[in-house]
Nucleic acid binder design. Structure first.
Length: 791
DNA sequence: GAGTTTGAAACT
DNA sequence: CAGTTTCAAACTC
């Protein structure tokens, strides 16, 4: 415990630095409040109010974007004083708000340290199999340890200095399965803490008590949540050496991933039948809130907070049904998750290693994979991974693009099938590679959520889609074979694979790397360093490249909503235009081959292009303007067997837009608008975007975000809907990149693809728009299932 | 499957 | 910033 504690203290210190604002208040508020709380009057007030006293100001400060209805400073408890507490506060709020029931008596008890202690004990007494011996702080990989950690997290916040023991850090629950009864597990820990003099259990106590009370009712929910929480809790760096890299390193992407993973977990659980629809709704809310969550800065600053919070939220969610009503709580949860997601890899790895079965055990991968270096990443739950893979993500990234129209067609159907397979046989030999970057994940999650709204059946679909298995055997088979295999399998290029010989897959030459993906089995690369094992190297290289070109990993193809009004009829049909950000430089291909990034991305050439003899069927560039008539387009389309009529229409749209917009642009249109348009007309026949753009782009999610499938069969090509989604996201991306936040500074996180994730973070005034856009996306999701043919 | 072409990425 | 080299995908045979 000693070491941990020290580290935790350091952390807390750093946190304080980050959140300096709060520090002063801490001391000031604490003393007075504590007194106040002790007073009978305070207790009385508490009893009267359904709202719990504790948390408040700090949180509010931290999350400006969040509007908590909470009852603030007046009820601020002493706990507020510590930063961690502030984190906890969120949780408290959540629990509090979500559960009025919890209130009065419990709250009163909690308000005082003794009360808390008492509460904890009482709860603990209920526990049956608790082993006090399980050390709370010991650094062991043992399941018990994990559990204890979880407990810590739950109990985490403490007024006492001891509380500083970092709940967040290194907190991970390897054995969700071990947590059969959340209350059982958690409560004991609480007790343990209390015994050790750590009394900051308000949140814990509440959460625990709630759990205990509702455990029966919650049942499966709890477990699911816990498992989810476990994921969240894992903060280990991929390397496992560092618990915390710091908020700065964690990107929104990761956050997104977090959210996604959470959602996925929920979905998965539900799919399995373990969880009810409530979970899904929560997830959905979470997602939405996440979108709203907005400020990256805040997120970064409070990552730690989130960690704790997420857990608490999860717990609360599991125990109470009120969560849905609490946007805030969900929001925190989502945010938290994001941060955590980034480090999921390590966590999952550990999970596997320990051989503990996760909450969604069904999804758990074979343990064997974990130990091997190459397979470190391969263990994610099928759901999460799959979804990522399937829904590649935000931002069109040519690098990510891979599929040809052909592939797309083929894959499209296969994807569903594969997803189903995954569900049915999650434990297939294939392992999962976890993407480092989250951007994709988010997307996928978002998409997945849509189904949730509609119902369990939809959920299943989503989960199926998400289901994604990757074979982690790297370089095992001959490259060519692998490649062929994928191709023939109809695997989409969304699952990238490279054939690098000299670049070590650490340069943009490598499609995988460029797409933010780790190389996987299908890759035939040599001397590949783009593997989870070399995550540090990968990240470092990424940073270097980004330092040279901040947009290096940004989507190459951006879609924007051009002036809709100008477009006229088309506007309704085709909300967005797309163009290659930098433009191509084709000399010989006439922009009619995939050598041309514009063509490959399914977008017309623009003024930005320096191509010669441009014949891009998606839109030619002539001089400064694109020239192409519908007739021409159709002709070209006809010529191009793979291109559909629909695409042509989109092309036209693009062209028109491009002509009008020369600049980068995505900007004029707010993401929200765009997303809405998509949502509204996602499926209109006319609205379809260039196929290629859809297809390939999806993979942008990348490394850190999306998974790649080792097995072709599992690779799922993005569905039409997905494509749309991706497109939308891409729109956002450019803004982000261009925005005040430099991709590097702001969004940078441990994950290579951090940038992509981002939107919320940037200072954009648009943050609201982004938020809304995400919401819209979710809404649009429901329709998604219908689009993709089921077999 | 080998070889060629192509253009982006990287380097100077 | 332009020119050159390197690289790996795309393409052809």
């Amino acid at each position: 415990m000693g070491e941990e504690r020290e580290s935790s203290e350091r952390e807390s210190e750093s946190e304080r630095g980050g959140v300096a604002m709060e520090t002063p208040q801490r001391n000031q508020i604490m003393t007075p409040i504590s007194r106040f709380e002790d007073s009978p009057v305070f207790n009385f007030l508490n009893s009267l109010s359904p709202i719990k006293p504790v948390k408040s100001i700090h949180i509010t400060q931290t999350f400006n974007s969040l509007s908590f209805a909470s009852v603030p400073s007046v009820f601020t408890s002493p706990h507020v004083s510590s930063l961690k507490e502030s984190r906890f506060i969120k949780r408290h709020q959540v629990s509090d708000l979500s559960k009025p029931e919890f209130s009065s008596e419990n709250v009163a008890k909690v308000s005082t340290s003794e009360g808390i202690k008492y509460f904890a004990h009482s709860s603990a007494e209920r526990l049956e199999n608790f082993d006090p011996g399980s050390s709370v702080c010991k650094a062991s990989d043992e399941p018990s340890y994990e559990c204890s950690k979880l407990a810590m997290t739950l109990t985490y916040d403490s007024n006492s200095p001891d509380s500083d023991s970092t709940p967040c850090r290194g907190t991970r629950i390897n054995c969700v399965s071990d947590l059969v009864d959340a209350s059982t597990l958690l409560i004991p820990f609480v007790q343990d803490f209390s015994e050790k003099g750590i009394f900051g259990c308000e949140g814990h106590t509440e959460g625990i008590s709630q759990i205990d009370q509702t455990s029966e009712a919650a049942g499966c929910h709890w477990e699911c949540l816990i498992s989810d929480a476990a994921d969240l809790l894992v903060f280990e760096s991929p390397n496992g050496t560092e618990d915390f890299k710091g908020p700065s390193q964690k990107s929104l992407d990761s956050g997104t991933r977090f959210c996604t993973s959470l959602i996925n977990d929920l979905q998965t659980t539900q799919a399995v039948g373990a969880v009810g629809s409530d979970e899904l709704h929560r997830a959905e809310n979470l997602y939405i809130q996440l979108g709203e969550g907005g400020d990256e800065k805040e997120i970064a600053e409070t990552q730690d907070m989130f960690v704790n919070t997420s857990l608490s939220n999860c717990v609360a969610g599991g125990s109470s049904e009120n969560i849905d009503d609490e946007p805030v709580s969900n929001l925190y949860r989502g945010m938290r998750r994001r941060c955590l997601v980034f480090e999921m890899t390590g966590a999952r790895r550990k999970h596997l290693e320990e051989g503990s079965s996760c909450g969604s055990t069904m999804l758990s991968l074979p343990d064997g994979n974990v130990s091997s270096n190459d397979k470190q990443l391969a263990h994610l739950k099928p759901t999460n991974d799959s979804s990522r893979c399937i829904l590649p993500g935000i931002g069109l990234h040519l690098n990510a693009l891979a599929t040809t129209s052909k592939d797309y067609k083929v894959v499209k159907h296969e994807a569903l099938a594969s997803g189903i397979q995954l569900l049915s046989a999650p434990e297939s030999s294939a392992s999962f590679q976890e993407p480092l970057n989250s951007s994709v994940a988010v997307t996928s999650s978002e998409i997945d959520l849509g189904p949730v709204e509609n119902g369990a059946s939809e959920l299943e679909e989503a989960s199926q889609v998400s289901g994604y298995v990757v074979n982690e055997e790297f370089n095992q088979s001959s490259p060519k074979k692998k490649r062929r295999r994928f191709e023939h399998a109809g695997e989409t290029e969304s699952c990238k694979r490279c054939n690098c010989k000299k670049s070590k897959c650490l340069k943009l030459y490598c499609e995988c790397f460029a797409a933010g993906l780790y190389c996987v089995e299908p890759c035939s690369c040599q001397d590949c360093f783009n593997k989870p094992v070399h995550e540090d190297t990968v990240l470092e290289t990424r940073k270097q490249i980004e330092s040279r070109n901040p947009l290096a990993f940004a989507p190459k193809v951006v879609r924007s909503i051009d002036a809709v009004p100008e477009i006229g009829d088309h506007s309704s049909k085709t909300p967005a235009s797309a163009r290659h950000k930098r433009g191509c430089n084709c000399k010989k291909s006439g922009c009619l081959k995939k050598y041309c990034e514009c063509y490959q991305g399914g977008v017309g050439c623009s003024i930005n292009c320096r191509c010669e003899g441009c014949k891009n069927t998606f839109g030619r560039k002539v001089g400064s303007a694109l020239i192409e008539t519908e007739a021409e387009l159709e002709e070209e389309q006809t010529e191009t067997s793979e291109k559909s009529v629909v695409e042509s229409s989109s092309h036209k749209f693009v062209i028109q837009n491009d002509a009008k917009q020369n600049t980068d642009s995505v900007l004029p249109a707010t993401p929200t608008q765009f997303s809405r348009q998509l949502a509204q007309q996602p499926f209109s026949s006319k609205f379809k975007l260039p196929r290629s753009s859809f297809l390939s782009i999806g993979s942008s999610s990348g490394l850190y975000g999306s998974q790649r499938s080792g097995k072709p069969s599992f690779c799922q090509p993005p569905t039409k809907f997905e494509k749309h989604f991706q497109t939308v996201r891409e729109d956002e991306m450019p803004e982000i990149l261009h925005g005040n936040c430099s991709p590097i500074s702001g969004v940078k996180s441990a994950s290579p693809n951090n940038k992509r994730v981002s939107p919320p973070h940037c200072d954009f005034g648009l943050s609201p728009g982004q938020r809304s856009s995400r919401k819209l996306i979710l809404q649009s999701i429901p329709s998604f299932p219908s689009l993709t043919p089921k077999h």
